[in-house]
C-alpha cells in the first residue's frame, strides 16, 4: 500500500504573526517558515506504517511557491521516499488544493492519504474532508490512533466529548491531531540522503484543474487587544476580587 501525505509550508509556529499596516495580510517577508506541525505528524505516521510493514511507499506532495521544495526535502529527510511539488502563482484555497490532490490520488492510487487536521496559518480545517468528499472515500478526522487491519483502517478520533473509534474501508483519508505521535527529527545523514531522493515538479495547470480562488480577502486586521490588568498580592485579595465579580461567595 502506498501512502500520500500532503504537506504545507507555513509560518513557523514559534513566530508571532504580524498584520501588515496596509491591512492586506500577514507579513511573511523574512520570517521563518516551516512544515505545518500537523503535517509533520502526518509524515511521521506514514513512515511508522511503512516501518511496521503496513505500507510500501510514502509520497509527499506540496502545493505552493517553489520554496515549498524545502518543506518537501524535510519530509524526505524524515523518511518519505518521493516528492511531488505543484507550483502555483497565487495562493490555492483548500477546495483547489483538494481538487489537485484528487488528481494526484488518481495517478498514485494510494491506499491512504494522511493530512494535517488544519494548517496553522489559514486555520481552515477543510482540505482532508473535501478530498474525501471529492473521491467518495471514508474519512477519519482528528486522529489520535491509526491501525491498519487488512482492508480496514481503525481510527480513534479526538472529538468534543472525548474519543471515538471508526472503522474505515480502504482507501481512506486520515487527518492528524496532536497526540497521534511525536515526529522524529531528521538526522544529518538523512538530510544528506534526502537531497538525492526524487522530486517531480509540476504546475497546477498540468492537472487541468480550475484552482481560481472563490474568496477574496478584502481586509486583514489585528484583533482587539486586551489590556493587562492588576496583580494582587495575596490569595485574600484574589478572593475579594472574585467576590466582587460574583464568582466567590
Amino acid at each position: 500500500m502506498k501512502i500520500v501525505v500532503p504537506v504545507k509550508r507555513v509560518l513557523d509556529y514559534n513566530v508571532k504573526p504580524r498584520v501588515k499596516a496596509d491591512g492586506t495580510g500577514v507579513d511573511l517577508a523574512n520570517v521563518k517558515m516551516s512544515m505545518n506541525p500537523f503535517d509533520e505528524i502526518a509524515v511521521e505516521e506514514a513512515i511508522r506504517l511503512k516501518e511496521k510493514g503496513a505500507a510500501t511507499e510514502v509520497v509527499v506532495v506540496s502545493i505552493g511557491e517553489p520554496k515549498a521544495a524545502d518543506t518537501l526535502r524535510t519530509a524526505l529527510a524524515m523518511g518519505a521516499d518521493r516528492a511531488v511539488l505543484i507550483t502555483a502563482d497565487q495562493p490555492v484555497e483548500p477546495l483547489g488544493v483538494a481538487k489537485l490532490l484528487a488528481k494526484v490520488v488518481e495517478e498514485e492510487q494510494p491506499g491512504l492519504v494522511i493530512l494535517g487536521k488544519q494548517a496553522i496559518d489559514g486555520d481552515n480545517n477543510q482540505t482532508g474532508q473535501m478530498l474525501a468528499g471529492l473521491l467518495g472515500w471514508a474519512q477519519g478526522t482528528f486522529a489520535s490512533k491509526v491501525e491498519i487491519d487488512g482492508e480496514t483502517a481503525n481510527v480513534t478520533r479526538e472529538v468534543d466529548g472525548g474519543l471515538e473509534t471508526v472503522a474505515l474501508t480502504l482507501p481512506a483519508i486520515v487527518t492528524t491531531d496532536l497526540r497521534l505521535n511525536e515526529p522524529r527529527y531528521a538526522s544529518l545523514p538523512n538530510i544528506m540522503k534526502a537531497k538525492s531522493k526524487p522530486m517531480a515538479t509540476k504546475t497546477a495547470a498540468d492537472y487541468g484543474v480550475d484552482v481560481a480562488p472563490r474568496l477574496t480577502i478584502t481586509h486583514v486586521a489585528e484583533p482587539g487587544k486586551r489590556q493587562a490588568g492588576v496583580k494582587v498580592g495575596s490569595v485574600d485579595e484574589l478572593v475579594e476580587k472574585l467576590k466582587a465579580l460574583g464568582v466567590a461567595k
Binding site: E93, P94, L95, A98, D123, N124, N125, Q126, T127, G128, Q129, M130, L131, A132, G133, L134, Q139, T141, F142, R157, E158, V159, D160, P213, R214, L215
Partner: peptide, 22 residues
C-alpha cells in the same frame, strides 16, 4: 464543533463551494 468541522467541508466539496470556516 468537531461534528460540524467533520461534516461541513465534505458537503462543500460535494456542491463545489469553498467553505468559510469559523
Amino acid at each position: 464543533t468537531t461534528t460540524g468541522k467533520n461534516i461541513a467541508p465534505r458537503v462543500a466539496a460535494l456542491i463545489d463551494v469553498m467553505q468559510i470556516s469559523d
